[in-house]
Design a binder for these strands. Structure first.
Lengths: 264, 264
DNA sequence: AACTAAGTTTCACATAATGAAACCTTGTTG
DNA sequence: CAACAAGGTTTCATTATGTGAAACTTAGTT
């Protein structure tokens, strides 16, 4: 499980480079890696050849490569809720005039899939692709709350419970209590748990079978509204989530009746 | 070069799956693949284990996986012009009130890196991560025009010259003439060459050394303006391109102040 | 029940990955 | 400017891994 052969190891290296969040030198990766020098060196070479990494010869640094951007576009269109949810999110965003997020759970983290700013629409990877902690975001807690117990345990196990603000939930117990409350309620809040002044209301997107497909949230600031204000969005949020879930289940790719006029 | 060992082969499979543009069954991939059945099978398993592919057990289909979205975010922030160009593009978009694109050349294709929609948005094919043809887009031709001769030859060699509209350039000769004209001019147009009714003006982003870093474009419709109208944007486009190039060359990552996990 | 196509597993064999050691190359120091 | 590091690259015998023909197991016909 730790390793899917050579390919798994290479991808581990790729992740390690990406994890730095900035271009890195060979020796820096080496210091954090379990691989011996020549092995790591060969992986970096291979990944660079393959455009999975980009190498800057001047600075002698590696960073995640452009091929990933191409591949991710395909992933985003085929393996996420984003394309299905798009019209619904547009409508929601227009209706509430606040920032809207669409997220999915990826292992123990929240992965933001799409976003609408009230003002400037559609900025894809600028937000989408970003990951955040599950335990202190509205979407994270809501998705967790409706996951099956085994999953909840696994995810909670991996949380670091870093205190971002005074209201951050900082241990498993309080988080579990919060999850129970969310389950009872049907939706959840972020009470400035991640960033001071930032609050949100989050709604799970559930399949008919009750499986968590993702989550929606409407974010605002304490200067503009409060939790009670956000709560007034519950009906539209719940309708939107239901609509997305319905579409997701009826959706199958344009099998043969392809229009695809928009070329490549 | 064809193959970087096992890792290269696995990534080839990943590309093949992504190329379908929709979830695919094992046998479909097999039909297009040179790999023998069990080999391909194992690659798909490995990639799925690694979340580079997602497997839908109901439909028995593979599609590009969610891990790619995470990785691409890192790539987008570190290996593209997008983060540097962002404020400049915001300003440009606000100033001209039309759709603005930022693109880079990826092999023989145009890769859209970022985009700003106009206030009155035109529905179009482009998005960050999406690829387009180099020979019939403003950004593509402009980037090509300022590339070195060897590169131009290589890229032209790989173009398919599909006729999208009546004005599409459909052979290497006319394209080369157009590139010469663009080089003389300093910028280029898309004269409804890709989509009817869609025109644009494109400006290369060049380093001091004259290397092509990317390209910018302002897109509109024949209903709203014409080429002469777009040409009035030349000064602001050229200033913006210069500003981006300058920032790109002075850019170095926040070296030591690591404040990880501030994710949104 | 008999057939078929798609998907999965096995296993002897060949290839490709491995990493200790040696080797460059560039920048630093006495 | 010789001697030294430190970071980066190459070599090569050893071993682990990947390979794919064939056999097998479903699931879906007719």
């Amino acid at each position: 499980m730790t390793s899917d052969g050579t390919v798994g190891k290479a991808l581990e290296v790729l992740d390690q480079v990406a994890a730095f969040g900035r271009p890195v030198r060979f020796s820096e990766v080496l210091a954090r890696s379990d691989f011996p020098k020549p092995t790591l060196y060969r992986f970096l070479q291979t990944l660079t050849n393959q455009d999975m990494l980009a190498y800057d010869p001047d600075r002698q640094t590696y960073s995640p490569g452009i091929r990933l951007v191409r591949l991710a576009h395909a992933a985003w269109e085929q393996s996420t809720l984003a394309p299905i949810a798009r019209p619904h999110i547009d409508a929601l965003s227009a209706a509430v005039g606040e920032t809207v997020h669409l997220a999915q759970l990826d292992h123990a983290q929240v992965l933001y899939i799409d976003k609408r700013n009230a003002n400037n629409p559609v900025q894809m990877f600028s937000q989408a692709g970003k990951v955040g902690p599950a335990y202190c975001t509205g979407v994270g807690k809501v998705m967790l709350a409706f996951s099956d117990p085994a999953r909840i345990d696994a995810v909670i196990d991996q949380q670091s419970f870093h205190r971002f603000t005074p209201t951050t939930l900082t241990d498993a117990r309080t988080l579990r209590d919060e999850l129970t409350a969310i389950r009872a309620n049907g939706y959840g809040f972020d009470r400035e748990e991640h960033e001071p002044g930032i609050i949100c209301i989050a709604m799970p997107i559930l399949s008919d079978a009750g499986r968590v497909l993702g989550a929606l949230s409407v974010t605002s600031t304490t200067g503009r509204t409060n939790l009670a204000g956000l709560e007034s969005y519950v009906p539209i949020l719940s309708d939107t989530a239901a609509a997305i879930a319905r579409d997701a289940q009826n959706w199958s790719f344009p099998d043969h009746d392809t229009k695809e006029a928009t070329g490549r």
